[in-house]
């Protein structure tokens, strides 16, 4: 049987979402060109997930980073039909808050007992509940 871990944060935007996790220990740069505006592919030089699409994934970040254009590039990808399924962030910040609110997709943030960056690995199957703040991780 696959190992399951349950962690809890603050539900930031209601609704449920599930998908494979992509973990960004150093976040994703909000600068122009770091995320493909129409294909949702990570083009940030040096990012460990360079070349990977965010489509239908649960994005796991410590916070946002870089330009205040952060939300706009994710919103552009959403309108182009390439959106993540949900967000998990160790702590909320304003750049990420705008992205979550603008994309209007479920999110769990502000973990106090555990850092999701350390518990979740890229490829794990993650189910999140943006209302209760519960996150169920099935290890790959």
């Amino acid at each position: 049987m696959m190992e399951k871990i349950v962690i809890k944060g603050r539900g930031a935007l209601e609704g449920t979402a599930s998908g494979p996790a992509i973990v960004f220990p150093d976040s994703i740069a909000g600068n122009s060109g770091a995320l493909g505006d129409v294909d949702g592919v990570v083009y940030e030089k040096g990012n460990i997930n360079y070349g990977i699409s965010i489509k239908n994934a649960i994005l796991v970040v410590p916070c946002a980073k870089g330009s205040n254009g952060f939300s706009a590039h994710f919103k552009g990808a959403l309108i182009a039909g390439v959106k993540p399924a949900g967000w998990i962030s160790t702590k909320i910040d304003a750049r990420l808050g705008v992205a979550i609110a603008s994309m209007n997709i479920p999110a769990v943030v502000d973990f106090t007992d555990v850092d999701p960056i350390k518990v979740i690995s890229t490829g794990d199957w993650v189910e999140l509940n943006g209302t209760t703040g519960e996150v169920v991780i099935t290890k790959k």
């Binding site: 205040n68 952060f70 304003a94 603008s102």
Partner: peptide, 8 residues
């Protein structure tokens, strides 16, 4: 001020 984003 915060580093928000263009929608905000």
């Amino acid at each position: 001020g915060n580093s928000d984003g263009v929608e905000a």
